[in-house]
Design a protein around this nucleic acid. Structure first.
Lengths: 269, 269
DNA sequence: TCAGTAACGATCAAAAACAATCATATTGCG
DNA sequence: CGCAATATGATTGTTTTTGATCGTTACTGA
């Protein structure tokens, strides 16, 4: 076996498992330990992997420290003041007993805090949302089936999911990457897929976006403005954007960040 | 077993319950107490867990009341020694890349620790299993859709679930309430429902039961003995029960609870 | 309080992993 | 073809890790 082939095998093996031992690699490549060690050493200086005693490990060990991968947990803290205010308004629309759909996302995730004392029927495709509500509330939780995508933290199935098709809600709540005259825009194709499966399963579509989203654009259009029932945003929204929504017949709720009585402690309760 | 692998298993175990004892970890990893102590000490200085007398605990331990209602978490500790040994044999049957189904239950839950270093395609209807694997392993996780039942910790849908129907596995692993000549018995009608949806989605049916289950009966029969490919149990199984399985053409694996020095403490710890 | 037991730390020998070296095989090139 | 350059595999001695033992310390229950 040639050197390059071994290197490919080694790199592949290191991706598959947290740590590939020298002995394993010997069996995989039918070469000697000495050779494998030399290979690992070479790949180590090439910064292709990290050399550890006993074998080698991937350079960027997908640190599944938390369920929320980096992107998710980082997003969590961005604009969390506004997001919480927006989420609060969203939950305020609901009454106990209502069936609702919460699409995965960092803004919609903030709804969980205000749902802690409620008793709704919540359908979601977000693993973190389901987990949190399950642990910290008495709501009925329904989950869509499929593969859990770690990066986006959503559950998605390539097949038409009858659980999804049979759950019909009064309202569906979702975030978005951007909101323009063209409609509701999203960046991640995976999220688009997930959202398109849900979007027709509710009477009303409630979109939760902070005001910065009105100036952002994205490549993928999910649906037109007319499909949206209500937009909840923060007071940073510009008049022209509000006018745009009004023209499309979309209700607008501006979450009052100011009315929260002196809570500099934004932390959740 | 490699150092990194042990560390993963230890961290996995610490997540599951408030405190993982050294003895438990020894059995989980097949290494000595000295090694486990050294590992715990190392992980302690790495701030990955907290070292306590007798073992280790998670850094951020209390997830409130906990997702698992009482019944689940209580069951968790009963006969956990045997359950872990049984679960270990179960995982040993699998090769990386295999598609498998893990039905929810306390015995099958123990498989998660041994899956920490593996890379399988795991389909489950158990929220805790999905959660744990998601957080502590690189396995691909697929979840069935539906309502999350808190008592039983399973996800169940009244509708035929296409995710389920389209996932076909090599092996399905499940626990049971009892095992008699009549077949596999279950007590909870809800569990029966969940299991019947999955049981035909795999080539082989592997049943994980501790030996006490052979003398227990239950009201509901899930399937006959002949449907079972393999039974994994502990060394407490009686000869007549082994004969019963043999007569039905069922493979039997006895998980070696190799006599630990003077284990008069059969009680749970 | 006072055993009795469990957990611990230190120590040392065995095992595993390693680095260095040399002999052999393979490859490339004149 | 022959020779040199390089890669590979085997051998040996060294370092690291592991497991077992033993004396000490911390808990437990009467």
């Amino acid at each position: 076996m040639h050197e390059k082939e071994r290197h490919r095998i080694i790199l592949s093996a290191v991706q598959e498992k947290p740590v590939a031992t020298v002995v394993e690699l010997v069996e995989l490549t039918d070469s000697s330990e000495a050779t494998i060690r030399r290979d690992i050493a070479a790949l180590h200086v090439q910064k292709k992997l990290r050399r550890v005693r006993g074998g080698a490990e991937a350079l960027h060990p997908p640190q599944f420290v938390g369920l929320a991968g980096r992107p998710f947990s980082v997003n969590q803290s961005i604009n969390s003041r506004q997001k919480q205010a927006i989420a609060k308004e969203a939950v305020a629309l609901c009454e106990d007993g209502d069936p609702i759909i919460i699409n995965g996302g960092t803004t919609t995730f903030q709804m969980v805090h205000f749902l802690a004392n409620r008793r709704l029927q919540v359908f979601t495709n977000s693993f973190p949302i389901a987990e949190h509500l399950l642990k910290n509330s008495k709501n009925t939780i329904m989950l869509s089936g499929g593969t859990i995508y770690r990066e986006q933290n959503i559950i998605l199935s390539p097949f038409d999911n009858d659980v999804t098709r049979n759950f019909y809600a009064r309202r569906m709540f979702m975030g978005a990457q951007g909101l323009s005259p063209l409609g509701l825009m999203e960046a991640d194709p995976l999220l688009i897929q997930a959202e398109q499966k849900l979007i027709d399963q509710a009477d009303e579509l409630i979109v939760l976006v902070d005001s910065s989203k009105f100036s952002k654009r994205s490549s993928l259009i999910l649906c037109g403005l007319k499909r949206i029932t209500t937009v909840i945003t923060d007071s940073g929204i510009e008049d022209r954007h509000a006018a745009m929504l009004e023209a499309a017949g979309v209700n607008l709720i501006v979450a009052g960040v100011q009315e929260m009585n002196s809570n500099r402690s934004v932390t959740l309760e």
